[in-house]
Amino acid sequence: MILLLGETAAAREISEYLNSRRYELTRMQTWSEKASLHLPSLVIDASPPSSSVKFAHLRQWCEEQDIPYLRLERPETIVPVSPLIYSVNNWEEALIQLEDRVGTLYQEKGRLVTVFVTTGSHQLESIVRSPFARLARIVVRVLPEGRLVQKCQNMGISPRNIIAMQGQFSKEVNKVSLKFYGADILLTRDSGSAGGTDTKVSAALELGIEIIFIKRNNPHTGLTVYSVHELFDWVDANIPAPKCT
């Protein structure tokens, strides 16, 4: 049995391929050791980079069980040099930078500062509960899933400030969204071109919007591939396809 992690476009493509080859496949968004009734022959992690912490225990468990853990990693995004881009190494640094920029822009503009968040809902509460949130209007873009929208609302984010859309988005779509909501700051992380990082950054730069950019500084160690085709080749070479009956 192959365990596939992630709800990305790449995960869907991988699922279609494995099903076409008649592999026994289970897809999961979360994992706990107690839920593992059967040992998989392979774990494929096609989740976004932001999920790396969530599946850290699973990686460790696979090492203990001697089960291959194959990570589909998105190539790092090269962002241009610009005074509008504030690059940080992690979420904690992003919050510090947000506090500084929100405070500065609030003094300059004399109004609430609109922060357009595209990093999902996982760590969103730390923004909503931060002291600088009273100076900001938080707009968040998440996947169109009821549980995510409800999660944002439970944090106190107004429905009018929740964008539930499935990417990837073009630069033009990003520009329309940023402009419509009057974004002053774009908070985003490096999720690669597959995650639309390049189009978000270029759209914000063209509109003169500040960008707090969370770099990818913890690359996955172990079995790693950088495209779905490379992943297919690895599976074909290492996991025997089921025999047709």
Score class of each variant (00 low, 15 high):
Ala9Arg: 09
Ser170Tyr: 02
Asn161Ile: 03
Lys34Val: 05
Pro219Phe: 07
His229Lys: 14
Glu7His: 11
Gln166Trp: 04
Gly156Ile: 11
Leu124Gln: 02
Val102Thr: 14
Ala9Lys: 04
Glu92Ser: 15
His229Trp: 12
Tyr181Arg: 11
Ser36Phe: 08
Gly192Val: 02
Lys151Phe: 09
Gln166Val: 05
Leu70Cys: 12
Thr26Ser: 12
Ile67Lys: 12
Phe55Asp: 03
Ala35His: 13
Thr188Gly: 05
Pro159Tyr: 12
Ser130Gln: 06
His122Arg: 09
Gly167Trp: 05
Cys62Phe: 14
Cys152Ile: 10
Gly222Cys: 11
Leu231Tyr: 01
Asp236His: 10
Leu18Trp: 01
Leu42His: 00
Met155His: 02
Asn154Ala: 14
Pro159Phe: 12
Ser227Trp: 02
Val201Gly: 06
Gly196Pro: 08
Cys244Trp: 15
Ala46Cys: 06
Gln168Pro: 10
Ala94Ile: 07
Ala10Gly: 01
Ala203Asn: 01
Lys175Gln: 10
Lys215Arg: 11
Ala203Gly: 05
Arg21Asp: 04
Asn217Trp: 02
Asp233Trp: 06
Arg74Ser: 09
Ile2His: 00
Thr197Tyr: 07
Leu42Met: 06
Glu125Leu: 05
Leu231Asn: 01
His38Glu: 13
Thr119Glu: 04
Tyr17Met: 09
Ala183Asp: 02
Trp31Asn: 05
Met28Asn: 07
Phe132Leu: 10
Asn217His: 04
Arg129Asp: 07
Ile209Thr: 07
Pro240Tyr: 13
Leu72Lys: 00
Gln168Asn: 09
Ile127Lys: 00
Leu5Phe: 03
Trp31Met: 06
Ser20Asp: 10
Asp184Tyr: 02
Ile67Met: 15
Val225Glu: 03
Asn238Ala: 14
Lys179Trp: 05
Leu105Asn: 13
His122Ala: 08
Ser50Val: 09
Val79Thr: 10
Ala204Lys: 06
Asp236Pro: 01
Glu16Tyr: 03
Cys152Gln: 08
Arg129Leu: 06
Ser51Asp: 13
Val88His: 05
Tyr86Gln: 12
Thr224Phe: 07
Val235Leu: 12
Leu205Ala: 01
Glu73Met: 11
Ile127Trp: 00
Leu84Asp: 08
Arg189Ile: 06
Gly120Asp: 01
Pro80Leu: 10
Gly222Met: 07
Thr221Pro: 01
Glu145Pro: 00
Met1Thr: 11
Cys244Val: 15
Thr199Met: 13
Leu3Arg: 03
Tyr226Trp: 05
Cys244Phe: 14
Gly146Ala: 10
Ser227Gln: 02
Val43Gly: 04
Asp100Tyr: 15
Leu25Lys: 00
Ile78His: 11
Lys243Pro: 07
Glu63His: 15
Trp234Asp: 05
Pro144Ala: 12
Ser170Thr: 12
Tyr69Val: 14
Tyr23Ala: 09
Gln150Ile: 11
Lys175Phe: 00
Ser51Cys: 13
Gly120Trp: 03
Gly182Ile: 01
Tyr181Gln: 08
Tyr23Thr: 07
Ile211Asp: 02
Gln123Pro: 00
Lys243Asp: 14
Ile157Glu: 03
Ser82Glu: 02
Ala9Asn: 08
Ile138Glu: 01
Leu95Ser: 12
